[in-house]
Design a protein around this nucleic acid. Sequence first.
DNA 1: TGTTGTTGAGATTTCGTTTGCGCAAGGCAG
DNA 2: CTGCCTTGCGCAAACGAAATCTCAACAACA
Lengths: 342, 342
Amino acid sequence: MVTIKDIARELGVSPSTVTRALAGSSRISAETIRRVRQQAEQMGYVADSAARAMRSGTSALIGLLVPDIQNSFYATMARIAAQSCQRAGYQLVLSVTEDHPQIEESHVRALIGARCAGVMVVPTGGIRPATCHLLAGVPTVQMIRRAEGLRADGFGVNDRKALLAATGYLLDLGHRRIALLVGDKSLDTARARFNGYVDAFAARGLQPDIDLVCAGAPRASQGSEALRALLSRRVPPTAIVAAGAALTEGMLDAVSAHYGSRYPAVSLLGFGDTAAFRWWQGEGLSTIALPIAAIAEAAWARLQGLISAPGAATSSAAVVSFDTSMVLRGSARPPADQTRAG
Amino acid sequence: MVTIKDIARELGVSPSTVTRALAGSSRISAETIRRVRQQAEQMGYVADSAARAMRSGTSALIGLLVPDIQNSFYATMARIAAQSCQRAGYQLVLSVTEDHPQIEESHVRALIGARCAGVMVVPTGGIRPATCHLLAGVPTVQMIRRAEGLRADGFGVNDRKALLAATGYLLDLGHRRIALLVGDKSLDTARARFNGYVDAFAARGLQPDIDLVCAGAPRASQGSEALRALLSRRVPPTAIVAAGAALTEGMLDAVSAHYGSRYPAVSLLGFGDTAAFRWWQGEGLSTIALPIAAIAEAAWARLQGLISAPGAATSSAAVVSFDTSMVLRGSARPPADQTRAG
DNA sequence: TGTTGTTGAGATTTCGTTTGCGCAAGGCAG
DNA sequence: CTGCCTTGCGCAAACGAAATCTCAACAACA
């Protein structure tokens, strides 16, 4: 590995001159800069980021912690984060937590040990106090979910409002037996989405059938299994809302398995606007769309601010909520019994 | 930040004792190890990986370079890589190249500068010699694609055979006007897939209509645009094969746009076995399935070998090819004109 | 000509960790 | 009792970049 000393020796100058030339800092002649840069280029010099990190106390690493990189939300997030890092000269360290607080903590420890410049995190439901404590020393933003113990700005959506609108839409179509697939109570987002669902009924003087609420880990398999039982009931739900991206996959799996090639006799609302949803049954799946890219970009902008202005984050954590929107395609219609009645 | 010196001072021992105790190396008493570990725990010590990297000359970072993290192939790859790194005590640095050799090179430079322990790369079509040269000094494995200039073991599929089988399947169903969506010639995979397509015709004494081959950047939009023109022809293709994951998305977009809610009058074969393909038109999309997880795992195993046995990679690069399989669902049927004839 | 200011560049130190070497104490065989 | 080996631990030297300090050379000005 070629170091600045090698370049300095080759050029007959001192290492400090080489450093200054490469950094382009003040008090160095243009001619020296040119000579040093050319020599560095020719010798294939690559700066040792470890040495730089040691001296400066910070590295060019940004940590991104997500529960699942195959989830379309988090894949989009990773793309935005990767692009942003690329543009700003950072490297992205990807940590997949699988929603395990323990894995999350080990990743955060590693990030802290690497003196990473900043962290973007989708916290797990049961995030540990130790993890929060470790993150307190680093510029941090949280996305989608919000952990109470984490004093970091949050960027997400108004989950309650999203499900209030979605459930309301189905209620106004005439549905009453509306199944809900939702994550478990340890997630603030799941609680808010559940509340939105309940409140939509309440706003119309109704009450949801709590048997139709399937709460569990936000995984496709979870949603799929819970839903199959519901669909096989004597009186099945007339509509289903999935309140999570993975749960939407589970919903579509279960519905496909139950109806086969028949057109599903149940209205569906998905969560998130993955490309694949456009193809559902030829007409597309109606969904609750989240502006994930905008969220990630806002979080990144805030993180950059925190990095460049250290100590400015001492004020209490801010929360930025984006609005979701309904993308109406063909998967939600009035219920069959009402059609008969009308 | 608490360092080993702090722990040493607190305990009245020397820093080297602390290091050895934490490393659990030889010539250290069990009692000392216990005391040091407890003190470190209590003081919240986290090892500075920069200092460690500087001393040891290598870091615990693994670079993963993929063209597009939203592509289901690469998302799966990232999941496997992340899990593997997690288990082995490494951190994963995600680099999204967007298929630009320039971005690829800048990421590789950064990885080299970070003295990363190993690199897993899906090379761009036009990978630069400088990039290959940089990677020559680090344990490297390449996945899916193979760059000629890169002396690194490759893990991928038999692309020619995959399209030979897929095209042959459609030919045997009676199709003759089979459109092909494929990446551009700079990609070795695209060339091999194209060859498989041509060879399937040749093996039956036939010749493909070259007008039906759409070659371009492996992006959804690319496949979609090229295909729309074909579908609007007076004599459209009776079947379409997409030879790429993103191109498959493009294919489904174009077909959805052209047929709307009507059932598509064209047979389809996708590439890769994304969850979403199961839901296509209720019956599912027939696809060419790639064992991406197995590929990523094999590549990781090889990379670990290279890392632990330095210098063992001096022999010429090996190539490991996995076989693809056809997943037959409902999207490929005999052509309509033959149905009328029969 | 002496003083001051400015610019270019060398010398030294610092970051936290690891590791080769050396020292001291205790055990054991000769 | 002496010499050697083993065990446990301290000392100090790296590792590469970069900041600070220092110093020389030179120009402008009184």
